[in-house]
Design a protein around this nucleic acid. Structure first.
Lengths: 133, 133
DNA sequence: TTGCGTGCAAAGGTTTTGCATGGCA
DNA sequence: TGCCATGCAAAACCTTTGCACGCAA
């Protein structure tokens, strides 16, 4: 099954790359193109996101308050493969944290607990500094 | 606003305690009582779960594949307050892991990154030993 | 008796699916 | 031309809400 290169697919991927630092919802994509460029059908957005997720170019989260899924670019050029994400449950801000200690978590858990963490799917929840903790 | 003690509320709490080691969905509760005891209305299940969550007796997760929310008892008698949860994205099994190293994560992140992790809301995703990693 | 809780059905929101049409190769 | 991709609308989910009735205190 060959794969076609369509305008819509390019537009969505471009959008994901441009917004690689935030968590994007399907609705944001739909709304964006509705008002800024040529509208893209809802189904098309979902189908392309699914494909990008299967191809490991985008990863999918479901945020704690459950109001739909979030997507984020994680392909070439993104620096989000090795670090962890922290989401403030109060203000919703997403933080990207990378440090040696955090990197040790994966190896510790793998060695001692035989569990291979997929850091790209894991999000820590809590309260950030701004929101007073 | 006084709070009444109803049969349904007790049934749901009992169910949560009995199943404190797994992630339970609203639908599981509805189905269970539909077939095993007196059925409980959908809305009642959701309303009581919400209340239990506000009261910090149950916590709510949204699992990675996005098919609805999961709930888990975390009140007295549960040992899930201080440790982390690991969910295998292949078999769906939920693991409860507690060890000193993991406990250091919270204090490290708090000290160095000014983020106060809520470990009861955080779930690590990855592949477990059984599923070959 | 008071007023919170329940249950049903309807509404709301997100995501998926069916099907005819459009467009890449 | 062949076949995948798109777009629309409808369907399928999960969850919330409105409202009348039931039941705990």
């Amino acid at each position: 099954m060959a794969e076609y290169r369509t305008r819509q697919r390019e537009m969505i991927l471009d959008y994901m790359i441009k917004n690689k630092d935030i968590h994007v919802t399907a609705d944001m994509i739909i709304k964006y193109f509705q008002f800024h460029e040529t509208p893209i059908g809802k189904a098309t957005v979902y189908r392309n996101l699914d494909k990008l997720v299967s191809d490991n170019i985008v990863r999918k989260f479901t945020i704690e308050d459950g109001t739909g899924a979030c997507y984020q670019y994680s392909g070439a050029g993104s620096r989000c493969r090795e670090h962890y994400h922290f989401k403030c449950t109060r203000c919703g801000e997403l933080y990207h944290i990378q440090c040696d200690f955090m990197n040790e978590i994966s190896s510790h858990v793998y060695k001692e607990h035989k569990f291979k963490i997929d850091s790209s799917k894991t999000v820590f929840y809590g309260i950030c500094e701004k929101c007073g903790n």
